[in-house]
Amino acid sequence: MSNPELPDFLKGKIVCSPEDGMRAINAKRTKFYEILNAGELQSYMDGSRRQIVVASLVDYVRRRLDAGKSKAA
């Protein structure tokens, strides 16, 4: 199984902004919020700011990689 690495700008962080999350998985805003609203990422509201759990970004990428392997097999 492939082990995706965090981009440097997320290393050492537990949570990040949606903008950093979009950058990390290379998703545009609409797609990112589709993924988020589908429950694929963990997040919470901190006042009026949404925070994305960084580990959920890595888990999402792993699931996508695994899904791609299943289709190729």
Rank of each mutant, 00 (worst) to 15 (best):
V53L: 03
I25G: 03
K69M: 13
L36D: 09
S70R: 15
R63V: 04
I52A: 10
P18L: 07
V54H: 05
E34Y: 08
N26W: 02
R29G: 01
M22N: 01
E19D: 14
R29W: 02
V53Q: 00
V53G: 00
V53Y: 11
L36C: 12
R29L: 02
R62S: 03
I25E: 05
Y44Q: 06
R63T: 10
A27L: 09
D59P: 00
K28Y: 05
R62G: 03
L57G: 01
D59N: 07
A72Q: 09
D20V: 10
R49Y: 10
V53D: 08
S43V: 10
R62C: 08
D20Q: 15
I52T: 04
S56N: 02
Y60I: 02
S43Y: 15
V61E: 15
V53F: 03
L36H: 05
Y44L: 08
P18M: 04
A72D: 06
Q42T: 13
F32M: 08
I52Y: 04
P18F: 07
A72L: 08
I52W: 10
S70L: 15
N37Q: 10
R64P: 00
D20H: 06
A38K: 12
R62T: 10
S43H: 11
V61K: 10
I35A: 04
E40W: 03
R23G: 00
T30Y: 06
K69Y: 07
K28V: 12
P18R: 05
E40F: 08
D46H: 14
V58F: 04
S70D: 15
S48I: 09
M45C: 00
S48L: 07
Y44A: 09
M45T: 02
T30Q: 13
L41I: 07
F32L: 12
A73K: 06
M45E: 07
M22I: 04
D59S: 05
V61A: 10
V53E: 05
L41M: 09
D20A: 13
D46V: 12
R63P: 00
Y33H: 12
S48M: 08
Q51W: 03
E34M: 11
N37G: 13
